[in-house]
Design a protein around this nucleic acid. Structure first.
Lengths: 234, 234
DNA sequence: GCCCTGGCTGAACGTTTCCTGAGAAGAGCC
DNA sequence: GGCTCTTCTCAGGAAACGTTCAGCCAGGGC
């Protein structure tokens, strides 16, 4: 509910691949956004004109027109309508390089955590609450998104990228049980084929680094999943 | 956040190439500016009259009229409205002399760092806050933008142009992780086709020149990017 | 108490990522 | 035109990282 009432915003997701489109719209909806989808540039511009989304998630490679063109059209509609681009990781097209400079882009295959973080960042920026540093706190645990840094009881803790993403996901969902499948879906890239065993490994790594003393923050719910719980709430 | 709240200003970007227009407007917006765009001289003058931007970024080669004509018209509108010209690197001499009318100019292909630095400089000048020297400081590291000079522990350090731009970008974003892609996109020209390996090389050069002793300022976050962090923050 | 299932963790592996030195190509300067 | 400085590429080696797996442990049902 933390997330749910914080971000009420209308999004437009544009991608011609049905898988990605559904994956994104479903999980964005779950995160509390109002989501519409479009399959190509023409439709995107049409919908955008009608529904005036707060942000557009836009695949760079569309069947009818490229991301640049769509972004340009959207801009012509007036009203700030920021764009978050989706692009292939190894894109070398100069068209794409141009887009990438916009900074708000995510490369495929992405993890949902990445996309969500970006969307929130862009919305935060356009809404003007610029300066609040994005610092999550649970008990004596602190996480700074921009600095990509974590403190436990005031001490800096070094985390690998995956450890960091996992902890971030847990912290954003403090007090909510997350199944291993959910964690896998959010923290790992959507094309990850492996099994949920990795999650166990990474929870183990995390505990070793940030949860060695009482009161424990990361709790296992047998057969259900994991929760991060603030101290006294136990 | 440093940059973001320092420069709130309204810009008008005029270029007929959609790529450049989008590239510029997107990244200027990300840097905290309010941006409008125009595709030719006529539109530029129209918009400028209406919205009264604080600065106009103006391509010299426009389909309908040349940049200087546009600049003249803008001047006629009255009210100081400085112009930053964009011009091809191999512009002939008479054109370059023409640029003297301009408040400043940047040659294509540019890097975003260049454009941003110029815009800030021009705005600073026209606003009259001349005396604040633009000096960035992180630990015992100092960088003077105008003098284009760097000191480490009080000693002047000689940096190549690219090294300087890289360090500048890192310092402006102190405490924020920057991915290699981001660095590439900001410090290198937008048409640079090479890979992110250069960034590694230049970080290596920089470290050798300004970061050989503890406490280190430039940190590698494996799989994420680089950060410049002030000493005690570790 | 015993068994079964699910979870924990250490070890091992292959892979990725990064750092650095060396060198070729180019730009700018006398 | 030759010199230096700069930029970029490449490749080797080292370290960190992600993933899998197997053995062990703990909880819960019977």
């Amino acid at each position: 509910m933390d997330v749910l009432d914080r971000v009420e915003a209308r999004l437009l997701v544009v991608d011609d691949e049905p898988n990605i489109r559904e994956l994104l719209s479903a999980s964005l909806r779950l995160s509390g956004f109002e989501v519409m989808t479009a399959v190509d540039g023409r439709e995107a511009v049409q919908f955008a004109e009608r529904i005036r989304p707060d942000l557009v998630v836009l695949d760079v490679m569309l069947p009818d027109m490229d991301g640049f063109a769509v972004a340009g059209r959207l801009r012509e509609l007036g009203g700030q309508m920021p764009v978050l681009f989706l692009t292939a990781r190894d894109a070398t097209d100069d068209k794409v390089t141009g887009l990438k400079v916009a900074d708000d882009y995510v490369t495929k295959p992405f993890s949902l955590e990445e996309v969500l973080a970006r969307i929130r960042a862009v919305l935060r920026r356009t809404r003007g609450d610029l300066d609040l540093p994005v610092r999550l706190r649970v008990g004596d645990l602190e996480l700074d998104e921009e600095a990509h840094q974590v403190w436990k009881a005031g001490e800096v803790v070094r985390l690998s990228p995956t450890e960091f993403k996992l902890l971030h996901y847990l912290m954003v969902n403090t007090g909510r049980v997350l199944s291993k499948a959910q964690i896998l879906d959010h923290v790992w890239n959507y094309d990850f084929g492996g099994d949920a065993g990795v999650v166990e490994s990474y929870v183990s790594y995390l505990r070793r680094k940030i949860d060695t003393v009482e009161p424990r923050l990361i709790h296992t719910l047998r057969g259900v999943g994991y929760v991060l719980r603030p101290p006294q709430g136990d």
